[in-house]
Amino acid sequence: MARKQDVIFRGSKEGLHLIFNDQQDYDVLKDKLKAHLQRAEMFFQGADVVLDIGNLDFSIDQILEIQNILAFPHGLRLRKVIRGGREPRPVAKTVKRQRTSEPEKRNIDQRQHVVENRASMLKRADTYLHKGTLRSGQRITYEGNVVIVGDVNPGAEIRAGGDIIVMGTLRGLAHAGVGGATDVSIVAFKLEPTQIRIGDVIGRPPEGDSGAPREPEVARLKDGVILVEPLDVSRWEGER
């Protein structure tokens, strides 16, 4: 990204990292934060926040004010204030994250930190949970796994670095293993997608398909071909 963003939310093991651009004024940051929260309202609700103030000097009053902005009406809790670049202590806790998080250009230390974070996150297979129907034109992009509690309609898209699970009917497009992973799968209660992709392989249902059976199915990659089978949970677990 060419321009440095003033307010960035980034997920980590500790919760949401709120990173302020340390070249910006406090008042500007405050307004940007408010606007950002308003846009992402439902998305952040109830999350823990680690505030990264970089090289900025904040007074106690200012920090209290930020705590207030976070808390009302969005219900975010400010847990900690840190100075940029320091490794957050690992805590075993899954949190809601942003849908997409492109690495921002900060200083090199921080970029490394982000990369590390991503790698460890993928290893831990972080999961994004979406409740509700994903409708035409809506798209979820996430580096880890994606779970949809609801249907995915035609014209909707899920792009996940890891696995995709749809607890409902998958009618749209699902792409698991976006980064190139091939040992991932797509599971749906009813699997009748427009198209599924695993890694670099693209599959579509055969012409004149009479619809999916009324049982959960799993799509996986076998010898470079996407295979759809009834979901046998015990076998699935065994393989992993």
């Binding site: 035609p154 427009t194 198209q195 693209i202 579509r204 249902p205």
Partner: peptide, 11 residues
């Protein structure tokens, strides 16, 4: 694409 029956071929 839907009317043409080509929706599932879109990449």
């Amino acid at each position: 694409d839907v009317v043409m029956g080509l929706e599932n071929r879109i990449v």
